[in-house]
């Protein structure tokens, strides 16, 4: 737009910075608290910069009181397995729905679109009962299998595959690549941007998910990061805020760092829920 009055520029920055401070306040407070020794935390005197820097002590305490490494590892195992399964299931289906003609294709696609409408909480009770029947509760399988299909992923990839020219697929057929091979050798490489966005969407959703792990888990060693930090808090309620804030920092760190490194891609990936 055209040049603005400096007054406006100043106002713009003033308002945005004030807002940014409010938005950042919990993060700042979290880091500040995580860096304070207990005596400073429990003082009614407000200060952000700790007088004694105790971040390392608090982190050490956090890692000693809860198996944070384990939680992070569980988060990694769950998100990676979920996304891998989702890709294995969704890509072939998306390819067939986008590019092949077969009996029932339109019905299947209509079902996919319908399933996108189902909120995850809606199917929780029956899926829980199913896992109970199968004896799979309180296991990695319980965390992973219910998310092995992402109808949204199928939808997204199908829309993307639609834009891949038919000629490319025909060329692959002429070159001797099988239909199954086309999915992995031709469609997947051309769809890398969409796969990345979908991957970010999926990983963020399942790293941060609290509802489902809360329902199906019992054992401590299976806890995902959100569940781990929530349990930490329940056990330490009101006593040990330094290590608790340090633990919270650890839990949000992987995604926040990844986000800061590749924010454009992340924003793209996350706002895809908007289409969902």
């Amino acid at each position: 737009m055209t040049r603005r009055l400096p007054v406006w520029t100043v106002t713009r920055h003033a308002v945005l910075i004030a807002g940014a401070l409010v938005i950042l306040m919990p993060f700042i407070w979290m880091i500040s608290t995580a860096s304070k020794p207990q005596t400073e935390i429990f003082s009614s005197h407000l200060h952000l910069i700790p007088e004694h820097f105790a971040l390392w002590d608090n982190l050490r305490a956090a890692f000693a009181k809860a198996d944070l490494w384990r939680f992070l590892l569980n988060g990694l195992i769950v998100t990676v397995s979920v996304f891998t399964l989702q890709l294995l299931v969704a890509l072939p289906a998306a390819y067939a729905l986008a590019k092949l003609r077969f009996l029932g294709r339109d019905t299947l696609f209509a079902l996919v679109v319908f399933c996108i409408l189902i909120p995850p909480q809606a199917t929780a009770i029956p899926v829980f009962l199913l896992l109970h029947k199968l004896g799979l509760l309180d296991s990695y399988a319980a965390l992973i299998l219910p998310f092995s299909i992402s109808v949204f992923g199928i939808f997204l990839m199908r829309q993307f595959f639609k834009t891949v020219p038919d000629d490319l697929i025909d060329a692959a057929r002429m070159d001797g690549i099988s239909e199954f091979g086309i999915v992995w050798r031709v469609m997947l490489p051309t769809a890398i941007p969409a796969v990345t966005a979908f991957g970010i969407f999926s990983v963020v959703a399942h790293w941060n998910d609290y509802f489902w792990p809360l329902i199906v888990l019992n054992s401590e060693y299976l806890r995902t990061p959100p569940l781990g930090v929530a349990n930490f808090r329940n056990n330490e309620a009101g006593t040990d805020y330094g290590p608790l804030m340090a633990a919270a920092m650890v839990v949000i760190a992987p995604l926040v760092i990844a986000f800061l490194l590749a924010q454009r891609r992340f924003i793209e990936g996350i706002t895809m829920t908007g289409i969902k």
């Binding site: 490319l168 060329a171 490489p189």
Partner: peptide, 20 residues
């Protein structure tokens, strides 16, 4: 199958694999 007919085809959009 198309590949077994041993014919080659050149497409309008060239159909080159963009990632290779």
């Amino acid at each position: 199958r198309p590949s077994a007919r041993n014919l080659a085809m050149v497409f309008q959009s060239y159909a080159l694999y963009p990632h290779l």
